[in-house]
Design a binder for these strands. Structure first.
Length: 426
DNA sequence: TCTGGGGTCCTAGGACCC
DNA sequence: TCTGGGGTCCTAGGACCC
């Protein structure tokens, strides 16, 4: 059997690149994109990286540098990024029979069918096509395992390889280039493990792949061992093209301002429960428990702190929004304590199964399931067509001024025509 | 003043059973 | 004074990813 060849296609600074597609004057200028609530920096252009602003840092810690270098700042525009992502994915799909969509800005494919000599060329064709058709620059890494492909794309982003494409198939190239990759930049090695490895003198990907397997197993467990083996070229992770239904679904947001009133907390929890139920129906599942977590702002040392969570079993596993909201609110009233300034609420759904397998609880009167299904699918269809949850539960409130801050959001260019800038015809 | 929002898998330890 | 051994299941916590 032929040895597998993996490629990973990774969008460069994805959110920033999406913004630049619609603001071409921002190319070669420092740009960053913020998390929800305009709190943290979640995407940085190369120019911003060069300024030393770290990923995930809160904006307020870097306002000085941002001002000084006239960095353009955007609030997150996830509808735009999701839509651009779909366009990129559909192009990648044309280049391989199977694709694993790994995240919003990244996908794996297998190149087993491509003639041996032309991997590099093929990678460059993929890159050029995506850039030409969407305006999004990507890096392509090619290797005998997923982890080596990821290492290749990481190195390609830093200028190794050619035209943002790097092929890491030869043993000699591997040891040469992996020596230049910090161990913390290896896919699967995070902050903690990186520290552990460095304490033992392991600083590069090359050193990690040369480390004794049993020692790695003992220090980093089976997961870390797999990473080390993959660096050696031994396949531990396969392509997973199938979308697997989520085993847990979470909907959560920080509030735009502190919330103390239970009425407002109920609105937020209702809305998050509603969003979580929507995601549940998208994957044709039902949940058997709903959980609620609320917390004050842990960074605010002067405020009294409180956080608590509760999990409520649903009498019958369901995807029906009003039912899920009802139990989520029951949970909220049990853990809510007055007198605190709450910052965030989370609603989660667990024990998820396929909706084909509704197990009726013998002791509960059976609700009219098909009628409920019809109502929900009607609501989902209308909301999909009109967006912004034009139909929502009254429990989620009308005013909702606890909602998150998003002061710098760009127009949703590709999905909301009414937000497009007006261009005058001559 | 201001600090995101999702997910995955593994492991250790306790409860419980025979 | 003695205080098994092995199995399963569940959960909480911790590591990782983007």
């Amino acid at each position: 059997m032929k040895k597998p060849i993996f490629a990973v296609i990774d969008c460069n600074n994805f959110f920033v690149s999406c913004e630049r597609v619609f603001n071409p004057s921002l190319w070669n200028k420092p740009v960053l994109v913020l998390s929800n609530n305009d709190g943290c920096i979640v995407s940085r252009s190369n120019e911003v990286k060069a300024l030393g602003i770290p990923m995930g840092a809160p904006l307020f810690e870097h306002t000085h540098v941002v001002k000084q270098h006239q960095v353009t700042v955007f609030s997150a525009n996830f509808l735009l990024y999701g839509d651009m992502s779909q366009r990129v994915i559909s192009i990648i799909s044309m280049f391989a029979p199977q694709i694993e969509v790994y995240s919003i800005d990244e996908a794996f494919i297998c190149l087993d069918e491509i003639p041996d000599q032309s991997f590099q060329e093929y990678g460059e064709t993929i890159r050029n096509t995506i850039y030409q058709w969407t305006g999004i620059p990507v890096s392509v890494g090619i290797g005998p395992t997923k982890t080596l492909a990821k290492a290749a794309s990481e190195l390609a982003k830093k200028g190794a390889g050619h035209n943002n494409v790097l092929t890491l198939l030869e043993e000699s190239t591997q040891s040469d280039l992996l020596s230049k990759l910090e161990v913390g930049d290896v896919w699967g090695i995070g902050r903690k493990w990186s520290q552990t490895l460095q304490r033992h003198g392991i600083y590069t990907a090359q050193q990690l792949r040369q480390t004794n397997d049993r020692w790695v197993r003992k220090q980093l467990g089976i997961v870390g061992l797999r990473t080390a083996l993959e660096l050696q070229g031994i396949v531990c992770l396969r392509l997973e093209p199938e979308l697997r239904p989520r085993k847990g679904i979470i909907s959560s947001r920080s509030f735009g301002r502190p919330v103390s009133d239970i009425k407002e907390m109920k609105e937020a929890v209702s809305q998050y429960a509603s969003r979580a139920s929507e995601k549940l129906r998208e994957q044709n599942s039902i949940a058997a428990t709903v959980s609620v977590y609320i917390t004050t702002n842990r960074f605010n040392n002067n405020d009294p702190q409180y956080s608590n969570s509760i999990t409520i079993p649903l009498p019958i596993p369901t995807d029906y929004t009003p039912e899920i909201i009802r139990h989520a609110l029951t949970g909220l009233t049990r853990i809510f304590r007055p007198g605190y300034r709450y910052k965030k609420a989370v609603v989660g759904l667990q024990h998820i199964t396929s909706s084909d397998l509704i197990q009726l609880n013998l002791f509960t009167k059976s609700p009219n399931i098909s009628k409920r299904t019809q109502i929900m699918s009607c609501v989902d269809t209308i909301n999909q067509a009109w967006g912004d949850h034009i139909i929502h539960s009254a429990a989620a409130g009308i005013k909702r001024d606890w909602k998150m801050k998003q002061d710098q959001r760009s127009p949703r260019y590709t999905t909301h025509w009414e937000e497009l800038p007006v261009v005058k015809a001559h």
